[in-house]
């Protein structure tokens, strides 16, 4: 009873949203852009986009956070920038690498194709040059990358963040004191 009431309300809210939303018909260029995005943006590119946009917003949000003292704010900004750079570089490289690896290891079995190259090809797939199969390779590569990132987060991401935070912090302090070491 309560569940169906919640569902009805959610449906009504959604319908109200679609009622006020204007119809959008993509022109030729927009259509091409959407289709290319669906085909080409894998989790690696998604991570890169997130990282670049993060650099354009997060440090400023930290810098204008007046609720904390200046020293803490300085370290917070340095750490945010370091974290974004380290996280984006590691995240992008690992995802891209594992997706490439999965593309190599998910080919159709055939003459001259070694067994390891068909290791991750689902048995019921007959054609691999389709958008669906490319998405499957992206998904598989991304899931494998999560496993790899358990290690790289600790071995590369975190130490690199620490290193960059200290470097940026030293630079800022140096600049503020007006001299060079």
């Amino acid at each position: 009873m309560a569940v169906s009431a919640i569902k009805n309300t959610a449906n009504r809210v959604q319908q109200a949203f679609y009622n006020v939303m204007p119809n959008f018909v993509a022109g030729k260029k927009a259509d091409k852009f959407y289709k290319a995005s669906g085909r080409e943006i894998s989790s690696a590119e998604n991570r890169l986009i997130l990282g670049v946009t993060a650099l354009m917003s997060q440090p400023f949000i930290d810098f204008y956070n007046r609720k904390i003292d200046e020293d803490t704010r300085r370290v917070a900004v340095c750490r945010t920038v370091a974290k974004i750079i380290a996280g984006t570089l590691t995240g992008y490289a690992v995802r891209k690498g594992t997706i490439k690896g999965m593309q190599m290891c998910s080919q159709l079995p055939g003459k001259g194709v070694p067994r390891w190259k068909t290791l991750f090809t689902p048995k019921d797939v007959k054609k691999i040059d389709t958008d669906e199969f490319k998405q499957y390779q992206n998904a598989l590569g991304t899931y494998i990358s999560l496993g790899v990132m358990v290690f790289t987060n600790f071995l590369i991401d975190a130490p690199l963040t620490k290193f960059l935070t200290n470097k940026f912090n030293e630079k800022v302090v140096e600049k503020k004191s007006g001299g060079t070491k």
């Binding site: 943006i41 689902p122 992206n138 998904a139 899931y143 987060n153």
Partner: peptide, 25 residues
């Protein structure tokens, strides 16, 4: 299962793997 779930739904894959990625990060 991966092929059926994400082959036609890359947006869903981005949401699921993104969430798991943030937990590890």
């Amino acid at each position: 299962n991966l092929y059926k779930n994400y082959g036609e739904n890359p947006g869903k894959m981005l949401v699921h793997t993104g969430t798991a990625g943030w937990i590890l990060s």
